[in-house]
Design a protein around this nucleic acid. Structure first.
Lengths: 190, 190, 190, 190
DNA sequence: TATGAATGAGTTTTCATTCAT
DNA sequence: CATGAATGAAAACTCATTCAT
């Protein structure tokens, strides 16, 4: 009966997305979730634990959206699909997305436990890049470096689009994607 | 006589860097800065104002470090110098740097006033890129897109180095820089 | 279970009566009522709400004392009973009475909501005067004007007696009552 | 050079009238009066002293308005002029009037010192009533009782008119005045 | 005489957490 | 399992007053 637990997590996600992490109070959360304040403490040790669990939960959601259909098509097609999904996700006003951004600078992000969880969840991405390296398609560099070069721009572009700080055509975004792809690729052009 | 104001800003920077933004209380700040609680309110309207002013102050510090010697050398040299400065800055454990990361997801980042301030402060960077575009050295794309492709990876790499999430050689980092440079450049190679 | 709510109201009444409204602090109130500071906020939205509710509560007390036995005897007897009750009430050093005087110049007294409450609670008084007008016993004037002429002197006399600003015999007070009654009455004396 | 003292008193009057006594802070007062905060303490011992002095000052203003032309005409004419002046004064939205109402329930109103001041200032009123008593025109009662019967209704009516709690014709108000006059008069009507 | 920066105790209010029911 | 009343420490902010200049 994880019904209540989920109810609580979804309410927390909503409150964080709409009012900000610093406005997440256990009483408001209880009211929004339709449970008693004390009930939250049946499912989560304390507020910190709740946030950690929510972070995992939201990360899971994001990962499952990104890694959907990860195996279809050529490497270039996979790359482009991923890259645009990242942009779209950042662009979206979804609760999951809006709340996720607020976890990144919290104590505990650096905890090895959380690192391990993140690594595991994005395992398919690592595999994808390892394969591509083995096939000589992309630069033989540390995966984290490659991810930074390839996808950090997509994250930043998505965020800026959402905030309205970036006005450009869809075509320009497509060109940006190609530049990121080109950046990590090994050009075979004669 | 902005002595006290500066004292307060430096203390705030320190507390945020070491204990996190959510642990910045006006009492603790007053004690750390060695002033009375009420004194803070002589220099800053309220807590929000304090944070906004601190953000400006830290942004100023970062910009002045980054843009030092901006005009020396060829475009490629300028690019590499900037890119590595960004990595180094992110890598540093300085209060300014550690606290800066925590402002990004705060209400007010989107405020047009702050946008204008940021734009003004990084004006030299815009000029650099406009020139390079005019000289046919880099892709004719929106500057924000170019910055995202060129420098977001550097920011991410610096942060990951600081957090210990990235273990790679200096040589690999140098290669990453070259890939970013290549990504936005127009290759004249015959 | 309005036990705590009442405890708080009675303490507030006491503090206001003895120390003045401007000395009513939520901390002192909590201590005096024997509850935690936070508990007050379970029963009252904020300080303003507490004061509004207290005003209603005290008004209720006063009205129920005044309107007791309102229907017994002739009009003149009713009038005299009321008039002296008002004097006695003002003369008393009761917490209710002492605190009531301090609400009158507060924001919110003019609020239509409060006006309606007051009107409703003193409805029997209105009826009494309407009847007397219909029977040709008192002047056909707006009720509020009649109340002002008839009872404001009683309020003022009670207050002055309490404060020791008025030294006169009980007989003189009785004559004052008769003058007020005579003022609004239609004299049938041949 | 009581210029500054007066400047401060007028600003205090204004702030109390518009924002309420509880919003009178020494800093706001200093700003509004255009003096330094410390300067206020050259002219007044502390905040309490300031309020006491302001009360006297405003009382003086009110008395001088009321007692203007006090000696012109017959007793009845004097009475009516006074009574209507009281109503008009209460009806006014003047700073003096609006602020005065807020002093009445403050510690210090009962102080003998203040009582003496009030008595002295309204001395002409006492004389007027003593004369009328000697001439057999009004009831031989304690002056304070007579004032209560005669003028408290006028005060209440003025206040209610200002607050919009009373809707009646000017003619009705005139009749109310006559009833008050009749109440204290000795009717010689055969 | 006048200034205004500085003080620090005091204010109202919120909130994570507990525990008797 | 679930409730929600109660707690009390801590938060942001105000303000009367002082004092070196």
């Amino acid at each position: 009966m994880d019904n209540k637990r989920d109810l609580i997590l979804r309410s927390a996600e909503k409150i964080i997305a709409t009012a900000g992490l610093h406005n997440l109070s256990m009483q408001k959360l209880a009211i929004d979730a339709g449970v008693a304040a004390g009930t939250i403490y049946r499912y989560f040790k304390d507020k910190e634990d709740l946030i950690i669990e929510l972070r995992k939960d939201v990360l899971q959601q994001i990962a499952s959206k990104l890694l959907e259909n990860i195996n279809e098509g050529s490497f270039d097609e996979k790359f482009r699909r991923l890259w645009f999904k990242i942009v779209e996700l950042g662009r979206e006003q979804s609760h999951a997305n809006l709340s996720f951004a607020q976890y990144s600078h919290l104590p505990g992000v650096d905890a090895p436990e959380h690192q391990a969880f993140e690594r595991e969840i994005f395992q398919p991405l690592h595999q994808l890049f390892e394969q591509a390296k083995n096939q000589g398609m992309i630069q033989k560099l540390d995966n984290t470096l490659l991810f930074s070069i390839a996808f950090e721009p997509a994250i930043a572009i998505g965020k800026r689009l959402r905030r309205g700080h970036l006005e450009c055509t869809e075509n320009e975004i497509r060109r940006a994607c190609e530049l990121c792809l080109k950046a990590i690729s090994i050009n075979l052009q004669l």
